[in-house]
Amino acid sequence: MIPLSWYLILAAALFSVGLFGVLARKNAIAILLGIELMLNAVNINLVAFWRYGSLASIAGQVFAIIVFAVAAAEVAVGLGLVISIYRRRNTVVADELDLMKW
């Protein structure tokens, strides 16, 4: 069986990629994608911990399911806001959304 640490390293790597995407990308859609990667890293963590921990309690699985349900809701709202911005401003580049500063 593959040791637990492999899953954790995979999740950590995925999380870092996602965080880098959020912080470095300029396109709003790409930022949302980065957030999705971070959430999926969390899911890998949760399921792996559940599988290698106590199988009797289903808390890990339930948590993972709730996480992706919430993630879907979040992205739906996010895309809605992106569309409303795109209609007004014709851009999805985060750098150009600078009406308000300091």
């Binding site: 965080l19 959020v22 709003a28 971070m38 949760l46 911990f49 808390a59 948590f63 985060a94």
Partner: peptide
């Protein structure tokens, strides 16, 4: 403003969730 709030909120809650998952583990 809604969009900025969402981006910050989603990102920080993902980081927090990572903390939760480690805590659970």
């Amino acid at each position: 403003s809604g969009f900025k709030y969402l981006l910050f909120g989603a990102m920080t809650s993902a980081v927090m969730l990572y903390g939760f998952s480690l805590l659970f583990g």
